[in-house]
Write a protein that binds this DNA or RNA. Structure first.
Length: 625
RNA sequence: GCUUGUGUAACUCAGUUCGGGAGAGUCCUAGUUUUGUAAACUAGAGGUCAAGAGUUCAAAUCUCUUCACAAGCUCCA
């Protein structure tokens, strides 16, 4: 049997004349139905052997498609022209009746176009990615094609029951609702956020205001929602984070590659992968081909690995890419600031490994990498809540291994377990950040994937000379770069809530030293100091505007300058600088060299980029108010 | 995507109830002031009142549609 399902704004049809000797009796000659899933169906010769089975599968398929497009209104439209081998009319009518009856038992509103008539029809199909789907199936269950498997696994995911626990470093499992969260308030928020999905806040996220006010990032109304613009200071911060994460991955052994951002929708391997998920892709048409924008680096790397000749000696093979961008057309209502985007920058390092033992060894190495990357960037263990997701079976067999990870983090984690494996991974963890509105978002994550090596036909030659499919680890050591920025800004917002000054980590601060001359007379001397700092790879700038000192200080503080130095007669005479360090009450007296050393020490090990704007404030454009 | 709310100058906002001159502060420009650790003074420039349509003699204001943002829901490969 073949069906073609069209999600349509309306369909209207009119029976013209008999197409077979004994057509169905006409209830109404013509009809117009708005907002429906129109299913054209052809029953085929092979369905004769077991029409009930075919009908049953047809019902399942229609239900599946209907739930994907969220449509309760269904029009069954017998349409023999989909096939070259039609069944007898009687069989087709039987199948049609069963399908109609079964669907009516559920919550669907079912319409039928008359069977056995030549009909004229008009239809307006919605344009969205899932609006046109065809399915094919036969009466024999063993002949179910791959699409069927995919929808099955989707169905299972929906029915999946999760078992939630808190796992403490001593190895004890606790009920999420009974655990004593004293000292772990954020874990409580995270656990209930995950489990209960409860949220009760009505504020705007704090980082959105900050990202605008500091002229880092802004919305771009001329683009699609969730596609942002980065001002020079925001671009600097993003570039530094990108570089740091990439450096660390390469130091770990990552091999950097670059892959296309768009892929053919009809590529056989990708098609299967796409069908697994509700359509959230951006689509592009070029000539007559349809492409989707990548939503992860997986495809490009897997397709590359598929074509590579790989020996077991090369394993673990770590392919790395920083995707600028990955695209996901998230629901518009879900987009917020830097937290949830439609275009985002994702560092993605996959590791191809020979077997589960090697996978677990590598998993540990990458766990350490992720934690250290986040810590060094300014996100501490205390800011993170870890979730680990696996099957009950894997947990029981590898309890020590998992406990080892929990001990590295040094605090209780949220554990989610399933009875059986449904997803492509067998083990997954994430580090989540809980923000000022108690919302949780994932940063680092790693998974052990035991399906895609085979699905993509990736092979390596093992010691025994045989070709085998590797397991694949998917890791983002930091999570999306934008989300790291979000976490750092939200962290600053926590400080502000406590009445402290919001700060950026020194290595990321667009202005590390603001030089403020007291008057025009000291401009030249102050400019000399600024240049000296710049020469020493410190991001220093000069407030050369003719404003009062108090005003310049105020503005420097509002820009979150890490340090501010006022230059006048005293400094010129003594050579000492009165350093105002953000967040500290008193001025610290330092020589120029001491100031440079202080900054070098504080930013040690982190990348450096020069000032993103002219050093003179008078020459800078103002991007936001 | 759904529900509710918001949208006035580069920024923060008043004006919308009950239709009739588009305003304030900040920022920017010019001049005065030459300043010592969080806001000097004077003047000037700056707006398609989100966009489009409708009602009206007259619309920022009333009605409808669209877009953007926010909150909640749903979702999150």
């Amino acid at each position: 049997m073949k069906i073609l399902a069209l999600h349509s704004d309306f369909i209207e049809f009119e029976a013209k004349k008999k197409a077979i000797k004994e057509p169905e009796e006409l209830k109404n000659k013509s009809e117009k139905i708005a907002e429906s899933l129109v299913v054209f169906m052809s029953v085929e010769e092979r369905d004769e052997s077991n029409p009930e089975s075919t009908a049953k599968q047809c019902v399942e398929n229609i239900k599946d498609i209907a739930s994907q497009v969220k449509e309760k209104n269904i029009v069954l439209y017998p349409y023999v022209h989909l096939t070259n081998n039609p069944s007898k009319p009687k069989t087709a009518l039987d199948v049609l009746d069963i399908v109609e009856g079964e669907l009516k038992k559920e919550e669907y509103k079912v319409h039928r176009s008359p069977f056995g008539w030549y009909k004229s029809f008009n239809i307006k199909v919605k344009g969205h990615p899932l609006s046109e789907l065809s399915r094919e199936f036969g009466p024999d269950d063993s002949k179910e094609d791959k699409k069927e498997e995919e929808t099955d696994s989707l169905k299972k995911e929906r029915k999946l029951t999760s078992y939630w626990h808190i796992l403490t470093p001593d190895g004890n499992l606790h009920e999420v609702s009974k655990f004593n969260y004293k000292g772990h308030e954020k874990l409580k928020k995270f656990a209930f956020y995950e489990k209960e999905k409860s949220r009760a806040v009505k504020e705007e996220p704090a980082h959105v205001k900050i990202m605008k006010k500091l002229e880092l990032v802004d919305y771009e109304p001329a683009s699609d929602g969730g596609n942002l613009r980065y001002y020079p200071k925001g671009r600097l911060i993003k570039k530094l984070i990108e570089e740091y994460v990439s450096d660390r991955v390469i130091e770990y052994g990552g091999v950097e590659v670059e892959t296309p951002i768009m892929y053919d929708m009809h590529h056989p391997t990708l098609l299967k992968y796409l069908q697994r998920f509700p359509a959230r892709q951006y689509q592009i048409e070029s000539d007559k081909r349809k492409f989707f924008l990548r939503f992860a680096a997986c495809f490009g790397q897997f397709l590359m690995a598929h074509d590579a000749t790989i020996s077991y000696r090369a394993l673990p093979l770590k392919l790395y890419e920083l995707t600028r961008y990955s695209f996901r057309r998230e629901q518009s209502g879900e987009l917020t600031g830097l937290r949830r985007l439609r275009a985002f920058t994702m560092p993605d390092v996959h590791a191809l490994v020979a077997d589960i033992d090697q996978a677990m060894d590598e998993f540990k190495v990458r766990f350490d990498l992720s934690l250290s990357v986040l810590n060094n960037m300014g996100v501490e263990n205390n800011d993170l809540e870890m979730a680990l997701r696996t099957t009950k079976d894997f947990f029981e067999k590898n309890k020590e291994f998992i406990l080892g990870l929990v001990k590295k983090l040094g605090k209780p984690i949220l554990l989610e377990m399933w009875d059986e494996r449904i997803f492509y991974f067998i083990l997954k963890y994430e580090f989540n950040f809980v923000d000022t509105l108690d919302k949780a978002s994932a940063l680092s994550t790693d998974q052990i994937d035991i399906e895609n090596g085979e699905r993509y036909g990736i092979e390596f030659t093992d010691k025994d000379g045989k070709l085998k499919n590797p397991l694949i680890l998917h890791c983002s050591p930091s999570g999306a770069i934008e989300r790291v920025m979000y976490a750092l800004l939200e962290k600053a917002a926590f400080d502000q809530k406590k009445g402290m000054a919001g700060t950026l980590p020194l290595w990321l601060a667009p202005t590390q030293v603001r030089v403020v001359p007291v008057s025009e007379d000291y401009m030249e001397y102050a400019a000399g100091i600024t240049d000296e700092l710049l020469k020493n790879k410190v991001r220093a700038d000069l407030d050369d505007r003719s404003l009062h000192v108090g005003k310049k200080i105020r503005e420097g503080e509002m820009e979150w300058c890490s340090t501010i130095v006022v230059i006048g007669e005293k400094e010129k005479a003594s050579g000492k600088l009165p350093v105002r360090i953000r967040g500290k009450k008193d001025l610290v007296s330092m020589s120029l060299k001491e100031l440079v050393d202080h900054i070098k020490k504080e930013t040690n090990g982190m990348p450096f980029k020069p000032l993103p704007l002219p050093k003179e404030l008078s020459k800078r454009p103002i991007f936001v108010g």
